[in-house]
């Protein structure tokens, strides 16, 4: 964690569906260069928060700023231009495309040519394809995806698909990467592999990571900062050590009347 300039600032964000409050007055910030985690019991509003940041939902109230620029009101497809990329909880790959093409779609907003140039596929289109292919190959090497390069994404094993999705988000060269449960459904080996990738992305590539995850071991090991949501409200935030010992967090996860833990 270096410096103290927040890359992402969520200010008093509320989100209501009809009369159900998914988020109420949530404030938190993600420091530049950090790995910040968002945790909370099922239904706490973690994914809703990510959806607000990535633009699928529009917050009912409140502001979201990214490097000082207001995000609310910006269409979801334009947010890659703000340096934002995300992965999904359930795999949201383009199943019919090869791994390579999935990553090339990830660079969609960075490729600079349109339909007309594509029709002729000469000069500019060809040069752009070639240039960005080199960048995509770097990411393929980085994530050890080269054996799968030309395979159709929908046919790959679950763990590999999760990695391809991470690669697709990385391909956009984001400043802030939103990861929605990247370890969900993975075995121990795949989890460790993914954790290593996330650390590398953060340290070597300098990408700030905002992580939603249920695997507490991973969260406590990786994070610089942890935010806890419960029933759409921020319950606590702080360093992993502080969160682990926070009685409010323990009761939210384990229930109030759990004498065994209270007596610990």
């Amino acid at each position: 964690m270096n410096g103290s300039s927040p890359l992402l600032e969520v200010q008093e964000v509320s989100l209501t569906f009809k009369n159900v409050a998914a988020l109420s007055r949530v404030s938190c910030s993600v420091q530049k260069g950090s790995i910040t985690s968002l945790i909370g019991p099922n239904g706490a509003g973690k994914t809703s928060m990510l959806n607000c940041i990535s633009g699928r939902y529009t917050p009912t109230k409140g502001k979201i700023n990214m490097s000082g620029r207001e995000l609310s009101g910006v269409a979801a497809h334009k947010r890659t231009g703000f340096g934002l990329a995300r992965t999904f909880q359930n795999i949201a790959l383009f199943r019919g495309l090869s791994v390579l093409d999935n990553l090339m779609v990830g660079r969609h907003s960075r490729l600079d040519y349109g339909l007309l140039a594509a029709i002729f596929y000469l000069g500019k289109a060809r040069a752009e394809e070639d240039r960005h292919r080199h960048r995509v190959e770097e990411i393929i090497d980085f994530l050890n995806l080269s054996p799968y390069r030309h395979q159709i994404a929908g046919h790959l094993p679950y763990g590999v698909q999760k990695k391809v999705e991470l690669g697709r988000a990385l391909a956009a060269e984001p400043e802030l990467l939103l990861l929605d449960e990247p370890m969900a459904g993975m075995n121990l080996e795949e989890t460790e592999d993914m954790a290593r990738s996330i650390l590398d992305i953060n340290e070597e590539w300098g990408v700030t990571v905002f992580l939603v995850e249920h695997d507490m071991g991973v969260v406590m090991d990786l994070s610089d900062h942890v935010v806890v949501l419960d029933f759409g409200r921020v319950l606590a935030s702080g360093t992993p050590e502080a969160i682990q010992n926070n009685p409010k967090v323990i009761s939210a996860y384990l229930g109030d009347d759990d004498a065994l833990y209270k007596g610990r």
Binding site: H77, R79, T80, L93, F94, G96, L97, G106, A125, A169
Partner: peptide
Amino acid sequence: NVIRSRPGRAFVAIRDYHQSAENVG
């Protein structure tokens, strides 16, 4: 030519998963 380049990939992205297509821009 369209299928093997940027717009073609975007078309397939829309077909396969339009929400994540939006998120990649």
